[in-house]
Amino acid sequence: MIDAGARTVEQVLVDLGINPIEVIVSRNGRLVPDDAVVSGDDEIRIIRIAHGG
């Protein structure tokens, strides 16, 4: 659980030092674009895109 305030997914990721194009994010179990707004009550899952394949 991240206390995100009311910010976009992209802002949260950048604040965490994560490049938004290297991950995909779900909010409360649903995949969302990086301009989705999240707040402190939301559960955010950050899925890292693995190398190779």
């Binding site: 649903r30 995949l31 969302v32 674009p33 990086d34 301009d35 989705a36 999240v38």
Partner: peptide
């Protein structure tokens, strides 16, 4: 839609992706 969510430009369903060039939101 839940607060802070965008809609698909083609059908209005919740967007899962924001694409560039041209900029648009798309549903699943």
């Amino acid at each position: 839609l839940p607060a802070g969510m965008s809609r698909c430009v083609l059908c209005g369903e919740p967007a899962v992706a924001r694409l560039r060039d041209p900029a648009r939101h798309l549903c699943a």
